[in-house]
Design a protein around this nucleic acid. Structure first.
Length: 491
RNA sequence: CGGGAUGUGGCCCAGUCCGGUCAAGGCGCCUGGUUUGGGACCAGGAGAUCGCAGGUUCGAAUCCUGCCAUCCCGACCA
């Protein structure tokens, strides 16, 4: 592996950074904190996006688009919200440039100062609710179920490709409901959509739960989240869904007339996932040879590499390869036959491994004789001979098996790296030596949460749905606790 | 915004302390040929105002001043 990656065991962080660039997913731009998503990386995002979009529509949502720029005054209408985002907003102050005095440069024209500054959206609640005010008059207008695919900008101090960039792509759902119960149901339903997508398509198991009050979204009454465990034992928040109560309805004065003609504020939710999911996908499955992609999200399912001497042999192999290709395509499998004569097979093998292509087929002169092909699967790196006869259905089944295997592997990793602890020493020792998720009793106070964070850098990732109500003692304060919560160091 | 580091062809980087055939090497790229069952080899070729702006000097990638950008460690976050 002369041109390979740093090993995960030696430098996990360097491994991740180099993998992202070497697998041709993204690169740094000249703009601080902003990335360029390259075609191969965008193809994966596109696949995520299509599936999520399909599920949003299947659950009754419609797409719409709102402006990138938000008047500054809007942001301040919801107090908690502005507190949460103020420190990381980019601000547009002018609308014109002019030539500099040296004649070569351009400078901001001081005459062109905006009356009211515009904020580049860090999230769109405010500008969307300003519109919802006009869209909602009656209970007949509800529920209003809107989703937006957009870019947003948060001026982060430290960035990492996909995991945290200043500008990122995401979807944000914004819904309005007549009742509190209905809004809560919506927020919970969308979290289920996210969890299902993570498991079934990304092959990434997640823990569903509630955020603690301190970790809640700015302006939310309740934040639901999915938390995923990465290979290095750190947690990653993969998606959030918020019950916003009537906070935004009150801030933007969004009322509706109920069936009795009585004016009520509407109940709201918002929910989102971002290109951070790309980071989650990479950190969940990839290995020291490169990216590993679940078939359901891979831009290429099968790569065919010919091994040949001379044009004549290549022509013979191409005939077999193209036949296999069309048989696979007939089953909906995306195939690339790589007959590039400039690259040697070894180079191609390494390349498709780096890019995470789930299945690779090699066809050489020996295979022509025997009527076979060599099939290599990316997830286990196993190679096996297959008969050319009836290959397509077997590979279709293999792709399904790979998808399943990746999920199972990730599930066992999660299980092995989720530890229940009973006391503070154990907590610290597990965190330091093993990492991963830690289930422990917590007294429910923000003070304890903060102290644990300061002493160990571990935060409460969520209060999982599936921990039981039980009598217990807080792992830190020894005060009374009613259930275990999920701790981890997080991205 | 504090602490540390870096900036040299598309990429990785040597050279900076001690100014003077010094703009080196590797990868990649282009051309031709030989190759092809795990990242091929040979030959030739193109490509750099040494981050930017001043200054010192006969002479600056190298010394001085200012600026800019990026990366790492903190506080902030999906």
């Amino acid at each position: 592996m002369a041109k390979g990656l740093p090993k995960r065991a030696e430098d996990f962080s360097a491994w991740y950074n180099e993998l992202v660039t070497k697998a041709d997913l993204a690169e740094h731009s000249d703009v601080r904190g902003c990335m360029i998503i390259k075609p191969y990386g965008y193809a994966i995002w596109d696949n995520m996006k299509s599936e999520l979009d399909r599920q949003f529509k299947a659950t009754g949502h419609q797409n719409a688009y709102f402006p990138l720029l938000i008047p500054k005054s809007y942001l301040s209408k919801e107090a908690a919200h502005v507190d949460g985002f103020a420190k990381e907003c980019a601000v547009v102050t002018h609308y014109r440039l002019k030539n500099g005095e040296d004649g070569k440069s351009v400078v901001v024209d001081p005459e062109a100062k905006l009356e009211e500054e515009l904020i580049i959206r860090p999230t769109s609640e405010t500008i969307i609710w300003n519109s919802f005010k006009n869209w909602i008059q009656s209970y007949r207008d509800l529920p209003l179920l809107i989703n937006q695919w957009a870019n947003v900008m948060r001026w982060e101090m430290r960035t990492r490709l996909f995991l945290r960039t200043s500008e990122f792509l995401w979807q944000e759902g914004h819904t309005a409901h007549a009742t509190k119960a209905e809004a809560i149901t919506e927020a919970e339903k969308m979290l289920e959509v996210y969890a299902d997508f993570a498991e079934q398509h990304m092959a990434m198991p997640v823990v569903k739960g509630w955020k603690t009050e301190t970790e809640r979204f700015a302006g939310a009454n309740e934040t639901y989240c999915i938390e995923a465990l990465m290979q290095d034992g750190k947690a990653l928040q993969a998606g959030t869904s918020h019950f916003l109560g009537q906070n935004f309805a009150k801030a933007f004065d969004v009322k509706f007339a109920d069936a009795n003609g009585k004016q009520e504020h509407v109940w709201a939710t918002s929910w989102g996932v971002s290109t951070r999911l790309m980071g989650a996908l990479i950190l969940t499955h990839s290995d020291d040879f490169g990216l590993v992609l679940p078939p359901k999200l891979a831009p290429i399912h099968v790569a065919i590499v010919p091994i040949y001497k001379g044009d004549e042999q290549l022509a013979q192999i191409s005939e077999v390869a193209n036949k296999i290709k069309s048989e696979l395509q007939a089953l909906g499998i995306i195939v690339k036959f790589d007959d590039d004569t400039k690259r040697k097979p070894g180079w191609k093998f390494a390349e498709y491994e780096m890019k995470g292509v789930p299945v690779r087929i090699a066809i050489g002169p020996k295979d022509l004789e025997k009527g076979t092909v060599e099939v290599a699967r990316r997830d286990t790196l196993e190679k096996n001979g297959y008969e050319q006869e009836d290959l397509a259905p077997k590979l279709k089944a293999l792709l399904e098996e790979i998808q399943e295997n990746l999920l199972n592997k990730a599930k066992s990793f999660n299980d092995e790296n989720t530890t229940t602890v009973e006391n503070w020493n154990e907590f610290k020792s597990v965190l330091e030596n093993k990492g991963g998720f830690i289930l422990a009793h917590w007294d429910g106070t923000a003070e304890t949460e903060e102290k644990i964070k300061q002493e160990t850098k571990a935060t409460i990732r969520c209060i999982p749905y599936d921990t039981i109500e039980e009598e217990g003692k807080c792992v830190y304060s020894s005060n009374k606790s009613t259930r275990k919560v999920l701790f981890a160091k997080a991205y």
